[in-house]
Write a protein that binds this DNA or RNA. Structure first.
Length: 455
RNA sequence: GGCGACGUAGCCAAGGGGUCAAAGGCGAGGGUCUGCAAAAUCCUUAUUCGUGGGUUCAAAUCCCACCGUCGCCUCCA
């Protein structure tokens, strides 16, 4: 039984998909006007991993992750660069896929883009207006919050509390300061689309409602994203969607915690961001995945070089165990399924079924790492490796070492070093070891020969 | 001001009424191995879970208060 903490109820609930054996899931993707940062990567990696876990557990998952390719910041950045918004967003969609690919994130079933759904968005808004949930003013269209009775249920807020809050903006054309824009009339020089109102473009929240219902249906299982999206983004999406269909829109809401830097949320507006591109270069994809999955997805976590080095060391312990298994039994030893495998698989499932508790999952893995390093039993080792490979379906590490073409050269150098050692020429031997280490090769001498591995 | 989350060893981090004298990782100290290393391995590193009350036969786990940290209430993963 898989359990998920549902933001809507604030409780851990048993996960029961609408349709047996199938899961429909939507994750809010990036606004494409620059490179993604480590905070963005958290949601991407965590929910990618969760999706794959669901697949591992036998569900057929339809996974949608959108790109917001039209908004104020995209327009601004495109103007600064003197290019079209289309050109800018195309570029950063491509850059996103480069990072995602290196991070081991599987492509979604669908990657819809806002500007491909403008007609559907217009239809959707028209329906809202017909049903009395929306009103237009000066070419803008607004959602009437007071018409939707459970507004605030997701973020657990009361309309009265929000109205009294000091930070609600005053906007003359809105009937209520909490009403939010569905369609924005174009200002001079902005990209725009024809509409029953003035020509303009979609508001902030409408795209997710439209793309998700178009691709997944009026109701679907899981909607996920960062917890900074709960209000207003997801609250508004929910209001629109349920007002539009008259049905419950999403059954389970999953929200990941924020990544902070020096106790402050990592965000583009604060400027304290660390690009995924850069993190990948400095620490590598495995360390970054390890880092992102090492804490429960709902908790906040701190980003720093110490944390990353720690994650890298942790990952290395697993990678080292894989290398040791290979050294002990080679590549093609077959694993035999038995009670050992079943027992450990059950422990892993127990951890992950419980609201995707990845720290607990790693605890299970490290216990097996220890066993692998301790034993020389071929069957035992083969079983452990089989489990690791099986679990890697959702962990998404890349255990393959690059530089395979250089293996023969390394081998030669290691032999050369050993002849030097035999004649007690340790100066030469250490020089070779040092050089190899600089090139990323670690040598391990032992009583039965020298082994080496790519670090 | 409103809403929410969190505070567990030197650090990171699970657990969330008894089987907890609290998983796992990083780091540190000592032993083995080694030409020296590295890696590995063994041992050690929380009688205690922010503070103070309470409920209970029993609390890190539930309740209350307080202190501290963070997030949302504006674009944000």
């Amino acid at each position: 039984m898989i359990r998920i903490t549902n933001t809507l109820s604030g409780k851990k609930e048993e996960f029961i998909p609408l349709e047996e054996g199938r899961v429909k899931m939507y994750v809010c993707g990036p606004t494409v006007y620059n490179l993604i940062h480590v905070g963005n990567a958290r949601a991407a990696v965590v929910f990618d991993s969760f999706r794959r876990y669901l697949e591992y557990r036998g569900y057929s998952v339809t996974y949608v992750q959108n790109f917001t390719d039209i908004d104020d910041k995209i327009i601004k950045t495109a103007n600064e660069e003197g290019i079209s918004t289309k050109r800018l967003s195309d570029r950063y969609v491509a850059e996103y896929f480069k990072d995602a690919c290196r991070l081991g994130i599987e492509p979604a079933t669908f990657h819809p883009r806002t500007t491909d759904f403008v007609n559907e968005i217009i239809d959707f808004i028209s329906v809202l207006q017909k049903k009395g949930f929306a009103y237009s003013k000066n070419g803008d269209v607004y959602f009437d919050v007071s018409a939707f009775k459970s507004y605030g249920a997701l973020s657990n807020r009361k309309l009265s509390d929000m109205r009294s809050g000091a930070r609600v903006e005053i906007n003359d054309s809105k009937d209520d300061p909490l009403d939010f824009v569905l369609w924005k009339a174009a200002k001079a020089g902005e990209p725009s689309w024809n509409s029953p109102w003035k020509s303009g473009r979609p508001g902030w929240h409408i795209e997710c409602s439209v793309m998700s219902t178009t691709l997944l249906g009026d109701s679907f299982d899981i909607h996920a994203g960062g917890n900074d999206l709960i209000f207003p983004h997801h609250e508004n999406e929910r209001a629109q969607s349920e007002a539009w269909s008259g049905k419950k829109w999403v059954n389970y809401w999953m929200h990941n915690g924020m990544i902070s830097v020096k106790k402050e949320k990592m965000s583009k507006s604060l400027g304290n961001i660390f690009n995924v591109r850069e993190a990948l270069r400095v620490y590598g994809p495995n360390a970054l995945r390890m880092y992102l999955l090492s804490k429960h997805y709902r908790s906040p976590m701190e980003f720093s070089s110490d944390r990353m080095e720690e994650a890298k060391a942790s990952y290395n312990r697993i990678a080292n165990a894989m290398d040791e298994i290979k050294r002990k039994i080679g590549d093609d030893t077959k694993a035999v399924e038995d009670s050992f495998s079943k027992e450990w698989r059950a422990r892993m499932n127990e951890a992950l079924d419980d609201d995707f508790n990845t720290p607990q999952a790693f605890s299970v893995i490290f216990e097996l790492v220890k066993e692998a390093l301790l034993t020389d039993d071929r069957e035992h080792l083969a079983k452990i490796r089989a489990l690791f490979m099986e679990w890697n379906y959702f962990l998404g590490f890349d255990f393959e070492k690059k530089n395979v073409n250089a293996d023969a050269f390394v081998e030669t150098l290691v032999e050369l070093r050993n002849t030097a050692r035999v004649r007690n020429d340790y100066e030469q031997a250490d020089a070779i070891r040092k050089k190899l280490k600089e090139l990323g090769v670690e040598i391990r001498d032992s009583s039965n020969g020298s082994h080496w591995r790519w670090m």
